[in-house]
Write a protein that binds this DNA or RNA. Structure first.
Lengths: 106, 106
DNA sequence: TGGCGAATTGGTAAAATGACCAAGGATCGA
DNA sequence: TCGATCCTTGGTCATTTTACCAATTCGCCA
């Protein structure tokens, strides 16, 4: 793995890392249904607003969501809907694992 | 977000976390071309074998790869090929970001 | 214009992650 | 059986991540 290759994998890892947290997955899932302001998301997540704000900042830095200030509120929206396909695959992995577990117990 | 929901997002995050490291992305990429033994992968990655072994253990625990001992070697292989679709999306995100950057400079 | 709600940012402490070294188990050829 | 190779595991230390609190900024309206 040379330097250039490594840089490519690091760039990819940065995106995936941004998704590698339960709260951020929830945020993406929720935003996939339409834009939401931070206070709405905070309410749903049930954590400190500063925590949610920071999670959103991570997603934004990765280019996964976009923000727009309107009045005193900030609305976030998905920028790359393909991210949702992640979930399908993740579910496949989970189901495959579950099946194997079941097979072992059988 | 109730307890059950949270558990679902945590399960998903575990899978994605397993992919959220440049070396592990490289390993998955390489394994997508066919099974490899740990010593081959170690050679390619250029890190300590114990480091590579631990990365592989993370992927295995997530159910993304499977291992098979044959003689003195251990071969790893992809278990859920759909993981490769992650990369397409990740590239899309990266390209979109790059385009926006370019637009800002223009 | 004073104050309130919305949001971000800085700071801090706890927990998780990651890399390497050292040690140990398994397999194979001499 | 001895030694070499392959691989995993345990330990340690540095770095990163994350959650909350406190402080600050911004917009709105009473």
């Amino acid at each position: 793995m040379n330097t250039k290759e490594r840089a490519r994998y690091e760039a990819r890892a940065r995106i995936i890392k941004a998704l590698a947290h339960p709260t951020r997955l929830f945020l993406v899932d929720e935003l996939s249904r339409g834009e939401r302001c931070v206070c709405e998301l905070t309410e749903m997540v049930g954590a400190d607003m500063s925590t949610v704000s920071k999670h959103l900042a991570v997603l934004k830095a990765a280019g996964i969501v976009a923000d727009e200030k309107r009045g005193s509120q900030v609305f976030y929206a998905i920028r790359c809907p393909c991210v949702l396909k992640f979930f399908e695959c993740v579910e496949t992995v989970l189901k495959t694992s579950a099946r194997e577990q079941a097979a072992l117990v059988r």
